[in-house]
């Protein structure tokens, strides 16, 4: 098993006719993901690499039975795209777009709370269940089928961690980038809950960063409910306060959201906290008794 995305996932790509959408949809398909539809308003009836394009997500769902959406649209249109997918009853929505205003994300959060849809992202690399399905922009070849779950606010730092795991022979069940924005659709706790219910996932790598309190909430959840090994790294130990470190959500404000606070909370929850990203793989190997 894996969580949320597997061989039964049927994907509509919103923004398939754009350059990014077409490029990454092709890579996902190469990996074996079932890309069954594209959606671009006004381009209904066209095909991209043999995939039919529809004017609305509802039409795509009706005609192809898609149950997931992968979104590549410009940030100012991204909230609309997510809301359309929610309206069409799409269960898993993965939004790659970066640069969405926080106010739009607040509105998305409200709409998601009233729906049965799950949103991963925005501003994220997506989700991959190695050997089963890839909905995202991560390089597929560094992944390996296995039993370590990975959840992260970062993109390339996740690739770094996955690469270390794979080289040590530790494959992954599912890797999820929850994104670097202040109001993500899915947070660490949501992912831990799903990993807890997944018999395949035997351990979790968690990569957080400065800003907000999502890591502290994850620490509290893990302490109370998740009793398998967890290795965590928090990026931004050397970041100055009050500065946005690339990601919209990576900012220490009012002295809150420092790496130190987060690392202490995670360590207190029994999580193996590493000081540098270079130690993620070997620490997991030790935690699993495979060193």
């Amino acid at each position: 098993m894996a969580i949320w995305a597997d061989e039964n996932t049927r994907v509509v790509v919103q923004g398939l006719t754009g350059k990014e959408g077409q490029f990454h949809a092709a890579k996902c398909r190469e990996y074996g993901t079932k890309i069954v539809a594209g959606m671009t308003p006004g381009k209904g009836g066209a095909t991209v690499d043999g995939v039919p394009v529809f004017n609305t997500v509802a039409q795509a769902r009706q005609q192809t039975g898609c149950n997931a959406s992968l979104i590549f649209v410009p940030p100012m249109m991204a909230a609309d795209a997510v809301l359309e997918a929610i309206d069409a009853g799409i269960e898993l929505i993965v939004c790659i777009s970066e640069g969405i205003p926080a106010r739009d994300e607040v509105a998305l959060k409200r709409a998601l709370d009233r729906s049965k849809s799950r949103l991963i992202g925005p501003n994220c690399p997506g989700i991959i269940s190695p050997g089963k399905a890839k909905l995202g922009i991560m390089p597929a070849h560094i992944h390996k089928d296995g039993f370590v779950g990975v959840v992260s606010r970062s993109g390339t730092l996740t690739y770094e961690a996955v690469d270390q795991l794979t080289k040590l022979g530790l494959g992954q069940s599912t890797c999820i980038g929850i994104g670097g924005d202040p109001v993500p659709g899915t947070n660490f706790v949501d992912v831990f809950k799903a990993f807890k219910d997944d018999p395949l996932t035997e351990a979790v790598v968690m990569i957080g960063e400065i800003g907000g309190t999502a890591e502290e909430e994850a620490a509290a959840y893990v302490k109370a409910h998740y009793h398998k090994p967890v290795v965590a790294f928090i990026a931004g130990q050397t970041a100055p306060p009050g500065r946005r470190m690339g990601h919209a959500g990576a900012i220490i404000s009012g002295g809150k959201g420092t790496a130190k606070e987060k690392m202490e909370a995670l360590a207190a929850a029994g999580i193996h906290v590493v000081a540098t990203p270079a130690e993620i793989g070997v620490t997991m190997q030790r935690a699993l008794g495979r060193a």
């Binding site: 992260s152 606010r153 970062s154 993109g155 390339t156 730092l157 996740t158 770094e160 670097g180 990569i207 960063e209 400065i210 790294f233 990026a235 931004g236 130990q237 050397t238 970041a239 470190m245 690339g246 990601h247 990576a250 790496a259 000081a275 540098t276 990203p277 270079a278």
Partner: peptide, 20 residues
């Protein structure tokens, strides 16, 4: 560095090795 998280992680590991 490419990527915000990796860029922060790189700063952190430099500091860890005694640089700034």
């Amino acid at each position: 560095v490419n990527g915000a998280g990796l860029a922060m992680g790189t700063m952190d590991i430099i500091k860890h090795h005694g640089g700034s």
